[in-house]
């Protein structure tokens, strides 16, 4: 009856000055399983939760190495994420062919954002349905950026995206002030803790998460499962009974209708209401 009249294509403004299709694309980011990133002066750590589509399938890769000095973690449509990672790889490789030096992270992020922006202004295109956490190192130090389907980008000390990312954000917000002086090991520990926050009581195991590091003297690489498991064990943070931490966070997330609809495994009722537009 009262359908939204302003959301059938990307280029149509609502009278309130909003672009619904772009906002829907940003919802897609919230549906994906969580990805987190945090940085010190010298290192950036990316982490993500791996969810298999079914018991019978493997999970999809959510962290990609772009170059020796840059990597990304994605949340949302993995297919879009792969296309954008390939674009980033080719930009890096072209830059280092021409200048024999690594592409500054900030530049790559702007190029990526400009690419996403074009999709918000063309009637025959659709915005990318993926959010990217870009971790990188350049002569100015370590950087962490978030790239959004809207074409916006932000630099962060620490950030989390994807489903139940609010819990991880809350954790990171409590602790981020110490990150810039953190050691590499402490960053990884905080990354694992932040990932755990998004699990809602599930046990943190190396089989359901991926961690990657880039830093001074350390090219971007994904830690192998064995190493991650050892770290989880040594930090003693598997934490099955994290009741108090999980409960309020999931309540906070409850405000977002799409987030509930996302977790198909949870069998949460699909909320058919208008997607929340708060960014």
């Amino acid at each position: 009856m009262f359908r939204n009249q302003y959301d059938t294509d990307v280029t149509t403004w609502s009278p309130a000055g909003r672009l619904f299709q772009v906002e829907y694309a940003m919802e897609a980011v919230k549906q994906g399983s969580a990805a987190i990133g945090l940085r010190s002066k010298t290192h950036v750590v990316l982490g993500c939760v791996n969810k298999a589509n079914s018991e019978l399938s493997s999970h999809q890769k959510k962290i990609f190495k772009v170059d020796d000095h840059i990597g990304v973690a994605i949340a949302g449509l993995t297919a879009d994420g792969r296309v954008l990672s390939r674009y980033m790889r080719s930009e890096c490789i072209n830059y280092s062919y021409t200048y024999e030096s690594p592409l500054p992270v900030g530049r790559l992020v702007v190029q990526l954002a400009d690419k996403a922006q074009v999709c918000t202004q063309r009637s025959w295109k659709r915005p990318y349905g993926v959010g990217l956490l870009v971790a990188g190192l350049d002569e100015k130090g370590a950087h962490l950026y978030y790239n959004c389907p809207s074409g916006n980008y932000f630099e962060y000390q620490a950030f989390a995206i994807g489903s139940r990312s609010q819990a991880a954000k809350t954790y990171l917000e409590r602790r981020f002030e110490n990150f810039s002086e953190s050691t590499r090991e402490d960053l990884i520990k905080d990354a694992l803790m932040a990932i755990r926050e998004t699990l809602q009581g599930e046990t943190l195991k190396s089989s359901i998460c991926t961690v990657a590091v880039v830093g001074a003297g350390e090219p971007f690489h994904i830690l192998d499962q064995e190493t991650v498991q050892k770290l989880i064990d040594s930090f003693d943070i598997a934490g099955t009974e994290e009741g108090p931490a999980a409960a309020p966070d999931s309540a906070a997330e409850g405000g977002s209708a799409a987030e509930g609809g996302a977790a198909s495994e949870q069998g949460a009722p699909a909320d058919e209401g208008v997607a929340p537009m708060d960014i």
Partner: peptide, 14 residues
């Protein structure tokens, strides 16, 4: 780009 990065001699040589 106005981002504080600039091409150095090594980059220009390449």
């Amino acid at each position: 780009w106005d981002d504080g990065n600039s091409l150095g001699p090594k980059e220009l040589h390449s």
